[in-house]
């Protein structure tokens, strides 16, 4: 029996050689990805995962793990197996080129033309 300094552990009367069977696969359940919203109007942001046996408990663990300080109004949990992700090896699909300026507000500059027009047409 362990002669602990800790009265709580002493009460448990634990043997030092209390070997237990190893944890088997799925003992810790599957994982849920957690999305956290700080305040109304904000986007939900991915903050990490929890292991849980079902969505209700994933919400509970998600709240404990990611919402116990600061602002929180809402969380989502999604089974990791239900998330489809792009591949980092395909990151080149996001690459852009200077010609794509036509997608940007900054790609449209008209002041030179306006000034020139105003100068030439000063009556």
């Amino acid at each position: 029996m362990i002669n602990s300094l800790d009265p709580r552990i002493k009460r448990e009367q634990i043997n030092e050689d209390n070997t237990i069977a190893p944890l088997t696969e799925m003992d810790q359940f599957e994982t849920y990805e957690v999305f956290h919203q700080k305040k109304r109007g904000d986007q939900h942001v991915h903050v990490g995962i929890v292991h849980a046996p079902n969505a209700e408990m994933a919400l509970l663990f998600g709240k404990e793990q990611f919402g116990r300080r600061g602002l929180s109004v809402n969380i989502w949990v999604v089974k990791t197996s239900n998330v489809f992700a792009s591949d980092y090896d395909d990151a080149d699909i996001f690459e852009t080129v200077p010609e794509k300026q036509y997608r940007e507000a900054g790609g449209y500059k008209v002041m030179d033309k306006i000034n020139k027009y105003k100068k030439e047409n000063k009556a």
Partner: peptide
């Protein structure tokens, strides 16, 4: 609590 249909996949991040 373990359901039979649970399946583990590696977390994404």
């Amino acid at each position: 609590l373990l359901r039979k249909d649970e399946k583990y996949v590696t977390p994404l991040a």
